[in-house]
């Protein structure tokens, strides 16, 4: 499986340079207080993983990958792990940079305030990717792009309606528990959702022909 992750990282090597430039521009804007950079993990990991799917599709990589030892299992597993690794790397870099920015602008660093939005963003990223990956495995990257866009729009609309029309006061004590443990819930639920998505993707990929 390490070989498959390595393949994805080698494939994205060229893209890293371009995104490093974008990253630096975002950081400079953040230093000037013009940009909230918490969304960077979503942007980078999602774009990079979609790029790796595109390269795979363009070069018929999957038809070769499934012939390699444990190929069918490892190809999917590596994609999910490469994605988590990318998210974590960007998140760690972001935490360090945000801490520096905070120290330079306010002379204080409150790690909790820096990390919490990054965790929320990672949760959103994982949720987005949990939906995206099985669709890509089922339909292929080209057809999946349109479907993914529609699904994300639908989720955003439903989420917006939920927040607008649900009165959280009715939740009573449950709301207080949610408030208390939201961070643990967010982290654990994001991994559970991603794991369910992984199981679905594996099932699709095991049956897929190339």
């Amino acid at each position: 499986m390490i070989g498959f992750i390595k393949k994805d990282l080698c494939t994205l090597k060229g893209s890293f340079k371009i995104y490093a430039v974008i990253f630096v521009i975002y950081i400079i804007m953040a230093f000037q207080g013009e940009m909230n950079i918490s969304g960077l993990p979503t942007f980078f990991s999602s774009v990079l993983i979609l790029t790796s799917f595109s390269y795979d599709s363009y070069n018929n990589w999957d038809s070769y990958a499934v012939c390699l030892p444990n190929g069918r299992k490892n190809a999917v597993r590596a994609k999910y792990l490469a994605n988590i690794v990318l998210c974590l790397i960007v998140s760690v870099i972001l935490t360090i940079i945000s801490s520096i920015i905070s120290y330079m602008t306010t002379n204080t660093v409150v790690i909790g305030d820096i990390v919490k939005p990054i965790i929320i963003v990672n949760f959103v990223t994982f949720l987005f990717q949990a939906i995206m990956f099985p669709i890509i495995y089922k339909l292929g990257i080209e057809k999946a792009r349109v479907i993914i866009f529609l699904v994300i729009m639908l989720i955003a609309l439903m989420g917006g309606a939920f927040l607008k029309y649900v009165n959280f006061n009715y939740l009573g004590n449950a709301y207080n528990i949610l408030k208390e443990y939201w961070l643990i819930l967010v982290i654990s639920s994001s991994f559970i959702i991603l794991f369910i998505s992984y199981i679905i993707s594996q099932r699709i990929y095991q049956k897929k022909e190339f």
């Binding site: 060229g14 390269y55 363009y58 018929n60 070769y64």
Partner: peptide, 29 residues
């Protein structure tokens, strides 16, 4: 399949890779 060497009809390595990347990938495969 660990004992099978394969050449498929169409080219299958991502074209963005360099030749030496194949070594780095395959030694882990």
């Amino acid at each position: 399949n660990k004992d099978i060497g394969i050449v498929l009809d169409d080219s299958f390595f991502p074209e963005i890779l360099q030749v030496k990347d194949i070594d780095a990938i395959m030694k882990k495969v």
